[in-house]
Amino acid sequence: MRSMTKQHHDVANLAGVVLAFATLAGCPMPADYDATEAIDFPRKTHSLLPPAPPAFSEEAKGWHLGSGMVTGTGPEQPIAFPHYTHVTQNGMECEYCHQAARKSIHAGVPQVSTCMNCHTYVGKDKPEVAKVAEYFAKGESIPWKKVHDLPDFVHFSHKRHVRAGVDCTECHGQMGLQGKDLVGWGVDKGDKAAHGDEHGDEHGASHDDTSHEPGPVTVIRETTMQMGWCLDCHATHPSIDTNYGNKADLRRAELKDCWTCHK
């Protein structure tokens, strides 16, 4: 043992290599874990790498950086709807269109017939309004894109906030000023470029198809809508005192309960 001979070295070395290969050969393979019950009891594997957004397809436009991550931008919408015209110029109330805001967890994107309440008569000549009319005539939904896409484990309720007296603008910003530059979209096609459409740039640049024109970004995110942002006023909002009076302290504590949003 004191001084290993050359022979001993070889034997040990060989044994080591053999053992190493033997263990690797005996490895459980993914198939062992994948095959069982794939149809009856499907499972999803965890991806260690970020899922690759489809890079060179039409679908690529559909991928954006997660909601609440990037403010000042938003997805492209099928119709260049300007909040500015409706809210600021014509003085419409938010809840005229988003009529479920006081009743449901969703504020509600208006049914197409709500648009047609006015647009049967107003602005029929505008190309974007004509699109609305076309959807209505065909009986199809307008495929609006979600601007604020919270993670699935966040259970947010519009109703509770609206009824507590939180103003729409506190979270959504000055919606009435958004879409000012969209007024007249499509009338003089190509003159008006979408503003600040970041992912459009990202993916659009790599497109083979150079004919892709960025669609209208009608609504941008003005706030991050991240957890910390919510918490910033969840326990301090003045409406708590108004609504709860002498129970306000208790309510403030309650509002920091994780189960308020995560169930």
Binding site: M4, K6, H8, H9, D10, A12, N13, L14, A15, G16, V17, L19, A20, F21, T23, L24, C27
Partner: peptide
């Protein structure tokens, strides 16, 4: 030494197997 190398090879293989 060769003995060391053999042990080292076994250890490395075991480590890779564990990682897998």
């Amino acid at each position: 030494s060769m003995g060391w190398a053999a042990l080292f090879a076994i250890s490395t293989a075991a480590m890779i197997y564990g990682g897998w």
